[in-house]
Every structure is written in C-alpha cells, then in structure tokens.
C-alpha cells in the first residue's frame, strides 16, 4: 500500500516534526525535577524541591480557584450546550446557519477581544473580579466544544433506540432517561472535559476578569514567567502536563465506550 521510499521519507519528516513538538515538553518535565537552583538542562541531579516549593509559595489557592472556575465552566457549558446540540441535530429552524456561525465565532474571536469587552461590560454591573463573571466568560468558549462533540454523536445516533424503548413499554421520558442519556453520556463528558481544559488554560479573560483579586493558575504562571524563570514554574508546568494526560485518558476511555454505540 505504501512503498518503502515513501515510508522512509514520511517517517523522516515525522520524526523531525515530532522531536520539535515533544522535545520542549520533555525539557520542562526534566527541569521540574532538577536539583539545581537554575534552569540547567540537562540538570545536574534530580529532586522534588520545586514541587515542594509549589506548596510553600501558596500555589494551592491558584489550583483551587482554577478547579472551581473550570468545574463550573464545564457544568454551565454542558447545561447550555446539550439542549443546543439537540436543537441543531433534530430540528430544522430558521437562522440555523447563523446560530452555527455564532458558536463558531465564540471559538474563533481572539481572547483579548472577549477579555476587554467582558471587562467593559461586567465592571459597571459588579461582575468584574468575581468567580461568576469569569465562569460566564469561559462558558462562552466552552459551549461550542460541548455542542461540537455531542452533535457528531447525535447525528449518528440511531433514533430507533428510542423507538425500541417505547415499543417495549417505556414512556417517552423513561426512554430518554434509560437509553438516550446513557448512550450520549460519553460524548457529553468529552465536551465537558474540553470546556474544563480551555478554562483552566485560558489567560487573558482570567487576567482581566479576576486577575487583580485572585490568581487562577494561568494568571499565576504568566506572572511567574514574566518576572523570573524560576524552576517552580517548571514544577507547575509538570502538574499541567499531568492534567493534560489525565484529560486525554478520560477522553480516550469515553471515546472507547462511545465506539460501542452503533454508528
């Protein structure tokens, strides 16, 4: 199917590209375990000092804020996105294209524009510098992720499953509760994970809407990177690598159970 030379050329290109992609990640992980006081790479020895420093320097509050905001964002995005996905998948309505474009715009509009426009709007009504304000801001970007992930599954979802449930004695509500929701749950979960991740990593909206009173993780890292290149940042980065891997694992598991569903 794929000739030898072809394969060699492709593998060579891919190896170079993947080295470029992954090497920096490896560097951060390695430096975070360094025993040196500086950012030497390769490090002279290994220790957990910088992870301990995370605890000493009060990073925990940042993790907590980010966890709060991320979880609420995932929750709100799900509550708003799931019904919207049902509307898009099952009904035809005027302005449908415009609604899709709106969701697309919510992802594509640059974060700086969201940040300053929300700040301008929230400041006079007292939502600036509140967790709720930031959650609302992040939910704007989170909803499309929920919709996109669920939409793909909903389009392939066999509505005969609901019909089968009702034919065999389930009321319409029972059919949704016992069949539709469990079958769609993995896709909803994937969307929620995406919404959480984008919230946890978003910088500018967080900076403008909460940055002056609390320090979400992204804001704290940003300030750390700008002021000094202390390896504490590397340790924080290490925890984020773990977060990304954990999210990936959740998504992989969810997708595996989703693949079970008849397409």
């Amino acid at each position: 199917m794929i000739s030898r030379t072809e394969a060699r050329v492709l593998w060579f290109c891919a190896t170079v590209a993947l080295f470029y992609l992954l090497f920096p990640v490896v560097v951060v992980m390695t430096v975070s375990f360094s025993s040196s006081k500086f950012l030497d790479f390769p490090p002279p020895g290994y220790s957990l000092q910088w992870y301990r420093a995370l605890l000493d320097e009060g990073w925990l509050s940042s993790y907590w804020i980010t966890f709060q905001v991320g979880t609420l964002t995932a929750l709100f995005s799900t509550l708003v996105g799931v019904p919207a996905a049902f509307a898009l998948a099952r009904y035809d309505f005027p302005f449908r294209r415009s609604f899709e474009a709106l969701l697309l715009a919510a992802i594509i509009v640059p974060p700086i524009i969201k940040a300053i426009s929300l700040y301008l709007f929230f400041a006079p009504i007292g939502l600036a510098n509140t967790v709720l304000g930031l959650v609302l801001g992040h939910t704007v970007t989170g909803v499309p992720y929920v919709v996109i992930n669920l939409l793909a599954t909903l389009k392939g979802y066999d509505r005969d499953l609901e019909r089968a449930a009702q034919a065999h004695g389930a009321t319409p509500l029972q059919a949704i509760r016992t069949v539709t929701l469990p079958v769609l749950a993995p896709s909803v979960l994937v969307g929620a994970v995406f919404a959480f991740l984008q919230s946890a990593q978003e910088l500018l909206v967080a900076l403008f809407l909460l940055g002056t009173v609390e320090k979400p993780l992204a804001v704290r890292m940003w300030e750390g990177v700008r002021i000094s290149l202390s390896p504490t940042i590397a340790a924080a980065s290490g925890t984020l690598v773990v977060l990304a891997l954990a999210a990936l694992a959740v998504v992989a598991l969810a997708l595996r159970s989703r693949r079970r569903a008849p397409a």
Binding site: V25, V28, M221, V225, A244, L245
Partner: peptide
Amino acid sequence: VTVPYWLDYIVRTYS
C-alpha cells in the same frame, strides 16, 4: 500530537 495540543500555551512557551 495530541498531548502537546492539550498542553497549556504558557507551559510550551516557557520551555
């Protein structure tokens, strides 16, 4: 490809 994709921009830039 996906692991770096999901990793914070700040982390990747920091490295």
